[in-house]
Design a protein around this nucleic acid. Structure first.
Length: 466
RNA sequence: GGUGCCAUCGCCAAGUGGUAAGGCCGCAGCCUGCAAAGCUGCUAUCCCCAGUUCAAAUCUGGGUGGCACCUCCA
């Protein structure tokens, strides 16, 4: 298994801290709004990673947090005059159900910030005790970046005097403009938590470090966890700060490997609220089959930026269709459980820093070769079993082709239309039997007008939603 | 301004030293009553310049052109 380490900036062989075990932590969503395509991409990438690690025989513990303490959540609660918990529960639930539709497996641990306060307090106290953090007169607690000689080693940023000056806030009591908040004291009656440091709210960065320490870290290793993942934008300042907190409050560094997934752009533009082109997952799911979205979002390398557009999405559907057509061709037959050469190669491709493009090339070669043999006369009993086994392997490893193939091709077609189509196909078959091709072609045009494709096969006529 | 990434067929996209995967589109053919689906065949020398090497898309230097982060962000 090879992983590109986005801090060391090179592909490294993956060697776990503990033999046979992997601890993985990924920064999850802040639950104040619906998930957009970027959240989907990140969740899918690390879902694939856990699948590949497990296929390689590792015992994986995957944690992804839910940030349910945040200024944006509080703001939304105040605007909508709703309880904080009502908002965070709502968006946590919708996140879960949308991810489930995409075939994203639930992480093993999903810690919430609200449930991890004790761990945050403990870490903060250690940082204060070791002079890596300080309290201001206003009651805030800041991390003292000057106290950490390795600060900025992750993002390789260089702090310049000009920049420092620029970012000084007049009211701030920070020693250094780069210092970030561990605890923000709050005087008003908005969402606050009691702590040994007074009433207030924890800083965002502290959350992740504390939860990793609480749920995943092992004491005797040089790193708290094997792999830390997240979106490319989180490297600075979020991951930089996380790493500093962990490093300065414990005897280990944070993560041995860092993985950052690329961004999802919409038609070449960055998704953002100011551009008004945020693409919510729930809207995409109304228009497109969830598995097509899964396939599409995973079809290019996780580190590249992803340019979402409907043309490429249509191509992704065509590619997934091919898997389902072969599945349909072999529907209902039993598989053979032996590991095939195809399966070995597929896992090998995905174990090379998740090279999905190579994996898809292997899959499409396998599909072509299987179809070619099935096109020739004969029973091909062994090949059929092997192919079904291959398809099942693809389902498990990549989550492609998991549905009933007949239902897959009926996405978005209501029952009434399906009945109409069945009737029209019956009439067309009758016309064909009488060799009344003029009538059968007329009926075919009528059928195609429903936005479906028609295909005559030896076992009957089928339609597929385009 | 700082840091970093990228540039491969019309489009999407692998490949990081040994002579260009795969998909979409297109063309030709097989199959089909005709189609659709499926199958077969055909289609690029890798942004530019210079260098290293027996050998470079792949390494080095320079250029040009994109993009990201540096503020909350997956």
């Amino acid at each position: 298994m090879y992983i590109y380490d986005s801090v060391k900036k090179e592909k490294r062989e993956f060697i776990p801290l503990q033999e046979g075990k992997v601890s993985l932590y990924v920064c999850g969503p802040t639950v104040y709004d619906d998930a957009h395509l970027g959240h989907a991409k990140s969740a899918l990438v690390f879902d694939l990673l856990t699948r590949v690690l497990r296929a390689n025989g590792y015992d994986v513990t995957y944690a992804r947090n839910i940030t349910d303490i945040d200024d944006k959540i509080i703001k939304k609660a105040q605007e909508q005059k709703r309880e904080i918990k009502e908002i965070t529960d709502f968006y946590t639930d919708s996140f879960h159900s949308e991810m489930a539709l995409l075939g994203v497996n639930r992480p093993d641990i999903e810690p919430k910030a609200t449930e991890s306060l004790e761990a945050m307090f403990a870490m903060m106290q250690k940082l204060i005790d070791s002079n890596h953090a300080y309290r201001t007169e206003e009651g805030d607690v800041y991390f003292d970046t000057a106290s950490d000689s390795e600060y900025l080693s992750l993002s390789k940023r260089v702090q310049e005097e000009d920049e420092r000056q620029e970012r000084v806030e007049s009211s701030s009591l920070k020693k250094n403009p780069a210092d970030f908040a561990l605890w923000k004291s709050v005087k008003d009656d908005s969402l606050t938590f009691d702590s040994p440091f007074g009433k207030g709210r924890p800083g965002w960065h502290l959350e992740c470090s504390a939860m990793i320490e609480k749920h995943l870290a092992t004491d005797d290793a040089p790193f708290a966890i094997d792999i830390h993942g997240g979106g490319a934008d989180l490297l600075f300042p979020h991951h930089e700060n996380e790493a500093a907190q962990t490093r300065c409050s414990s005897n280990h560094a944070l993560a041995n490997y860092w993985m950052h997934n690329g961004f999802v752009n919409i038609n070449g533009e960055k998704m953002s609220k100011s551009l008004g082109n945020s693409f919510f997952l729930k809207d995409a799911l109304k228009e497109y089959d969830a598995e097509v979205l899964r396939f599409y979002l995973l079809s290019t390398h996780y580190r590249s930026n992803f340019n979402f557009n409907t043309e490429d999405l249509t191509i992704a559907k065509k590619r997934l269709d091919k898997i389902y057509r072969l599945k349909k061709r072999l529907f209902g037959l039993a598989d053979n459980s032996d590991t095939t050469e195809f399966q070995t190669k597929l896992l090998e491709a995905l174990s090379d820093d998740m090279n999905v493009s190579s994996a898809l090339a292997l899959i499409e070669e396998m599909l072509s070769s299987a179809n070619e043999t099935l096109d020739t006369a004969g029973k091909h009993k062994a090949l059929k079993k092997e192919t079904i086994s291959n398809l099942k392997y693809i389902e498990t490893l990549l989550g492609f082709g998991v549905k009933n193939p007949y239902e897959y091709f009926q996405f978005g077609v209501d029952d009434a239309t399906q009945e109409k189509l069945a009737t029209l196909i019956e009439q067309r078959d009758a016309a064909k039997k009488e060799k009344n091709f003029e009538e059968s072609d007329r009926l075919r045009d009528e059928i195609l007008a429903f936005g479906v494709n028609l295909m005559d096969t030896p076992v009957g006529t089928f339609w597929e939603k385009i």
